[in-house]
């Protein structure tokens, strides 16, 4: 049976219809068209589908969409403020904390939650915090580096040295792939300008 629920994702309301068994991951990807959360295992082991639920990282493949209604959901699409990247995003780029990139959205969200709880983590604490997110390319070293760099950057910014990081918009049509179409025949509610 389908019911109408409203998800709050990245501060935007998304009224969507779901079944009782619809997973948050599917609601985000197929109803809200936010495909940044990836599916790697569907059993909560790989962490590629990690999103923040009221600031806490969860594997969205193990969360029912209806149970996330009324909570603040943050996906990778909501991490940067317009063209200004979050320090964690910036650090994953500069420290080489990504290769194929499939684990990257989940890694970044978990790292943000980690740094929100502990502004100055040791490398061991970073490794502990990221243990639920599998990466098969990097061997983790450069991901730990990235979180360290981000922690320092965030500390600098909090000390008043606010640094804006401008990025170029994606100007490469060949890399962007074909245009997305709405499988259910219209733009998703709450979806703006994608």
């Amino acid at each position: 049976m389908r019911t109408l629920i409203e998800l709050t994702v990245n501060g935007q309301p998304y009224p969507i219809d779901v079944e009782g068994r619809t997973r948050l991951l599917d609601a985000l990807r197929e109803k809200c068209f936010l495909t940044g959360a990836k599916e790697g295992c569907s059993t909560g082991d790989c962490g590629a589908c990690t999103v923040l639920l009221d600031g806490q990282p969860v594997t969205s493949c193990l969360v029912l969409a209806s149970s996330a209604a009324g909570k603040e959901i943050t996906t990778i699409e909501g991490v940067s403020a317009g063209e200004v990247l979050h320090p964690v995003q910036q650090a994953f780029m500069s420290a080489g904390g990504l290769q194929c990139g499939i684990c990257t959205p989940g890694m970044i969200l978990t790292s943000i939650a980690l740094l929100n709880e502990n502004r100055n983590p040791t490398r061991d604490q970073i490794r502990f915090g990221l243990q639920g997110n599998l990466c098969r390319c990097t061997g983790y070293g450069k991901i730990v580096d990235a979180v360290e760099v981000a922690a320092k950057d965030m500390a600098t910014r909090e000390n008043g040295h606010h640094m804006e990081v401008k990025t170029e918009p994606d100007t490469n049509p060949a890399m962007a792939g074909p245009a997305q179409a709405d499988a259910t025949g219209g733009q998703a509610p709450g979806e703006k300008g994608r």
Binding site: E30, T35, K38, S80, G101, T104, G177
Partner: peptide, 13 residues
């Protein structure tokens, strides 16, 4: 890749 914009095959509808 850090903004979730990279399109993998499963992201295509």
């Amino acid at each position: 890749k850090v903004t979730g914009r990279a399109q993998y095959a499963a992201d295509l509808f």
